[in-house]
Computed example of a mutant assay.
Amino acid sequence: MMFNKYSIRFIVLCVSGLLSACASSPPTHFYTLESQSRPPATTTSAIAKKPLIGIGPLSLPALLDRNQIVTRTEDSSIQLAEFDQWAAPLKDNVIAVLSENVSILQPNAIVRAYPWSIYGNVDYRVIIDITRFDTQLGKWVNLEASWVIMEETTLAIISNGQVKLQSPLNDASYNTVVQELSKLLGEFSQQISLSLVQVLQRPRNTDTEENKLIK
């Protein structure tokens, strides 16, 4: 097949245009949530056997469980940030951060992130349902979630709670968004930790039905 000089020039221009477009495309930025908790000012005395606490399982709306950071607009529509994405699956990142936060806040307990089967069983598990974890750029970040604390051996729910948190933004950068979302997870972790304190301070009923029959 023969090409004249005009055809070749046209092909070269097209290829050059494509290369220029690729070169001018903005780079994709990747973000990760970070732990925000600090050790408590005072710690309780050491105990012989540390309780085992499992964080998870955790559920996220399908809308949020994706690579792109989800933003809301003033007209209630949704935008996906193609060039600002999570560096790891969001659900895994959130569980890891919550587990690390709670571990710092509960120095007298052993905290494991879901799934923990490789380490054996736990004494309590914190089941978490996050319904909102998004932003409106330049305005706010939002976290809404609920949780229950379940005793593993009896499968009894012994505590529960919910949070609705919002924090203003100083600018419209995604870096600020991620930092503020991490702070909201820190506040959420504190609420979970307070519930765990109440659970762990409760006296366990060692007088079982079997012991009552013996008496």
Rank of each mutant, 00 (worst) to 15 (best):
A46H: 01
A156K: 12
G54F: 05
D92I: 14
G17M: 15
V141S: 04
V141P: 03
H29T: 08
V178C: 07
K91Y: 01
R72V: 13
A156D: 09
F83N: 14
K212A: 10
F10T: 15
T43G: 09
K91M: 07
S45A: 12
S59T: 05
Q68T: 13
A172S: 14
L105H: 08
V197G: 03
F188H: 06
T131E: 15
N211I: 11
L19C: 13
V102F: 08
A172E: 12
G56Q: 00
N142V: 05
K5C: 08
T176H: 02
V148I: 13
I130E: 07
R125D: 12
D129T: 04
Y31M: 12
L64C: 07
L52R: 09
L13Q: 14
D65P: 01
N4T: 13
E100V: 00
L143P: 09
T28K: 15
K139M: 02
P57L: 09
I158F: 13
P107Y: 06
G120W: 08
I149C: 03
I149F: 02
E210I: 15
S24G: 07
L185G: 04
I53T: 09
I104R: 06
R66T: 09
T206P: 06
T44K: 12
L196D: 01
G17F: 15
T42H: 12
T32G: 12
A62L: 03
S193W: 02
S99H: 02
V163G: 00
N142A: 05
L105P: 14
Q201A: 11
R9K: 15
D123Q: 14
K164A: 05
L105C: 09
T135K: 00
A46T: 02
I157Y: 04
A81P: 11
S20I: 13
D129C: 03
W147P: 02
K164P: 00
N160S: 10
P115L: 04
S25E: 04
N205V: 08
I95N: 08
Q85M: 12
I55P: 00
V141A: 03
Q190N: 10
L58M: 14
L18P: 07
A46N: 06
N67D: 14
P57M: 06
S159H: 12
A113E: 05
L19W: 15
F83W: 06
W116D: 13
L60N: 10
V177C: 01
L165I: 11
V197W: 04
I55F: 00
S59C: 00
T44M: 09
E34Y: 02
R112Q: 15
T206Q: 10
K183S: 05
L169Y: 01
T28P: 13
A145T: 11
S117M: 10
A21M: 10
Q68S: 15
Y114T: 07
E152K: 07
I127Y: 02
S193T: 11
F3G: 11
I47S: 07
S182L: 02
T42N: 11
S45Q: 06
S25I: 02
A81N: 06
